[in-house]
Amino acid sequence: MLEIKNLHASVGGKEILRGINMTVNPGEVHAIMGPNGAGKSTLSNVLAGRDGYEVTQGEIIYKGENLMELEPEERAQRGVFLAFQYPVEIPGVSNIYLLKAALNAVRKYNGQDEVDAIDFLNLVRERMKLVKMDEQFLHRNVNEGFSGGEKKRNEILQMAVLEPALAILDETDSGLDIDALRTVAEGVNALRAEDRSIVMITHYQRLLDHIVPDFVHVLSEGKIVKSGDKELAKELEKSGYSWVHDAPEGQTA
């Protein structure tokens, strides 16, 4: 699904990612943890193709294609989805309008007709149940006046409607209360599928209690300094990141 090889990237002339290697196979869930400023959001922005993030070395292969040659919207149309750490407000544009435009963009790329209005409404209603969102949110402007938790749920709703092949969730759990965390986690679990990969960025073990990852990576100072299974996250929770740093080089995966 996704193969990242020796990825170096800089922002504003400053190198942030310094040689990342990572392979994500279909159906896998990977968690990325790491201290503030380690480069986690930078990695997700690079994967999504955001302007101003310059890849200086290495490559990113997605479904056999060189991702770096594609525009952000082309990546999205091919199934790369980023749930934003800070979802953006768009005044005057209703949530349902954006959802429909997004779905149609993906369908168009796949050679399908625009979605039928009734089918679309049924689909959205069903997916809203998944994240326990009230229908009134469909007619509110995108993220405008949404609480922090509502914005995060809205991201997962978009993911549920768009059914991406690769979903990158950047701190989707931050700002959620305990019940909301469970709801969102259940939503994501429902979206786990053999042909879908999920990369979750998080600071907290508690998310991983709900969405159990196949792999856990620790990103620090622009490098993956340690990889392991779900037990690694528990270790981190106990001992903090200094434990990873203090570990001798040879122990990093």
Partner: peptide, 26 residues
């Protein structure tokens, strides 16, 4: 940020701009 958000949802720049502008004029 708004533009990138829309593009990340699959809209090309023109459609994204048109959507944001139409929202502004709603």
């Amino acid at each position: 940020d708004q533009l990138f958000y829309c593009k990340q949802r699959g809209l090309d720049t023109e459609d994204a701009v048109s959507m944001i502008v139409n929202g502004f004029c709603k």
